[in-house]
C-alpha cells in the first residue's frame, strides 16, 4: 500500500492513454474490488489510480433485441431498468441476490465482470503459495481450507472461484463486451472473455493492460421465454453462492425449443453449460431430462475434500432451476 497518485481524467480516450502508458496504473470504478485489494488486503500495489467514475459510460439504452449497458452503470441501476425486469428477469434476480444494496449502488457492471476471486489464499499476501498472485509459487488452497472454491475449470494449480452472480445469466445470454484500448475498439463475447487458469492463473481474461470495458451488450430473451436464477448458500443473504444456476427456456408443447444455462459458484470463470443446453434442446421438459442435463454440466469436476459436496449440490441446483422455470414439479 505505497502511496499512489490519484487522477480523474475528463474523457475515455484520455483515461485509456493514461493507464495504457503506465504499468503501475489501474482504473478505479466502484472500488468494491480494487480498494479492498489495494488498501485492505495489500494484494495489489499501484502507482496511479485513474478514477473513471465520472466518465460518460453510464446508462442503459434499448435496441430492438439488445440492451446496451454502459460499463459504469451500477448493479442497482441495471436491476431497476424496466427492460431488464420485463425481458431479462433472471438478470434482475441475479443482480438483487448479489452483495448488498450498498455495494450494488457502488459496484458497476464493468467492475462486476472484472471482479477478482474471493479466495482467501489469494487475498492474503502472507500466504506464499498462490499462482494467481505469484505465478509459479503453487496453490495453498488446493491443500488448504476450500469451500467457496471452483470445481469446474479448476486444477491443482488454481481452484479460485469467479464469484459473480450477474455474469452467470450474462454468459447464458451471449452478452458481448465492448472494449476500448489505445489501438481502438473491439468486441468480445463474454463467453470468450475469460481465460481458464491453465498454467497461468494470473491471466484471467483477454484484456490487455490499459484496455477498458466501455459497454456490455446484452441480447434480450424472446418475449415468450421464461427464465430464473437460483442461488444456494448457507446464509440467507449477503453471501457468495455455493452454487448457482441461470436458466432461460423456450418451451413449446412440453418440449424445450431453446435452452440457455449457465452456472455460478462452481467455476473458475462464469460457466456456460453448452453441452447441457444441447441435451435440453428438443428434449421433453421433464425431470429426467433435467437430471441428465445436470450430469452433463458437472462432468469431470476437479474437487478437493472441502468442495466435493458441490458436485451433487450443483446438479440439484440445475435441476431445481429447470423445474422452476419450466413449471415442472419435482
Amino acid at each position: 500500500m505505497n502511496a499512489f497518485e490519484y487522477v480523474r481524467p475528463d474523457d475515455v480516450a484520455g483515461a485509456v492513454t493514461m493507464v495504457s502508458r503506465d504499468p503501475h496504473a489501474s482504473y478505479l470504478a466502484g472500488g468494491t474490488t480494487l480498494l479492498d485489494l489495494v488498501l485492505k488486503d495489500g494484494v495489489v500495489e499501484l502507482g496511479r489510480v485513474v478514477d473513471i467514475t465520472r466518465l460518460p459510460l453510464r446508462g442503459i439504452s434499448r435496441g430492438d433485441d439488445t440492451l446496451r449497458v454502459g460499463a459504469l452503470t451500477t448493479m442497482e441501476e441495471l436491476a431497476a431498468d424496466p427492460t431488464v425486469t420485463e425481458r431479462l428477469p433472471f438478470v434482475r434476480e441475479a443482480l438483487l441476490l448479489g452483495a448488498s444494496p450498498q455495494l450494488r449502488n457502488m459496484a458497476t457492471v464493468g467492475g462486476n465482470i472484472l471482479q477478482r476471486t474471493r479466495c482467501r489464499y489469494f487475498r492474503d499476501p502472507t500466504v506464499a503459495a498462490c499462482n494467481k498472485r505469484a505465478p509459479g509459487s503453487g496453490c495453498a488452497a488446493v491443500t488448504g481450507v476450500a469451500r467457496m472454491h471452483a470445481i469446474l475449470g479448476a486444477r491443482a494449480a488454481c481452484i479460485a472461484l469467479h464469484a459473480s452472480d450477474l455474469c452467470v445469466p450474462l454468459v447464458a445470454l451471449d452478452a458481448v463486451v465492448h472494449i476500448q484500448g489505445v489501438g481502438g475498439k473491439r468486441s468480445v463475447p463474454l463467453t470468450e472473455f475469460y481465460v481458464l487458469p491453465g498454467d497461468r492463473p494470473d491471466i484471467e481474461n483477454v484484456l490487455q493492460h490499459g484496455e477498458l470495458i466501455t459497454e456490455v451488450e446484452v441480447p434480450l430473451l424472446p418475449v415468450n421465454a421464461r427464465s430464473g436464477y437460483l442461488k444456494v448458500r448457507d446464509r440467507a443473504s449477503y453471501e457468495f453462492a455455493l452454487t448457482s444456476a441461470a436458466a432461460a427456456l423456450l418451451i413449446e408443447d412440453g418440449t424445450i425449443a431453446r435452452a440457455r444455462l449457465a452456472l455460478g459458484g462452481v467455476g473458475t470463470i462464469p460457466r456456460r453449460a453448452r453441452e447441457a443446453e444441447e441435451l435440453l434442446n428438443g428434449a421433453p421438459a421433464v425431470n429426467q431430462t433435467f437430471r441428465a442435463a445436470a450430469e452433463v454440466a458437472l462432468r469431470d469436476p476437479f474437487t478437493v475434500s472441502g468442495t466435493a459436496f458441490k458436485v451433487e449440490l450443483a446438479k440439484r441446483t440445475i435441476v431445481r432451476i429447470l423445474q422452476t422455470v419450466s413449471g415442472v414439479q419435482s
Binding site: Y6, G30, G31, T32, L35, D36, D51, T53, N105, M106
Partner: peptide, 10 residues
C-alpha cells in the same frame, strides 16, 4: 454506499 470502500478523493 459503503464509505470504507470509497476514496475520499472520489
Amino acid at each position: 454506499v459503503l464509505s470504507c470502500l470509497s476514496l475520499a478523493a472520489q
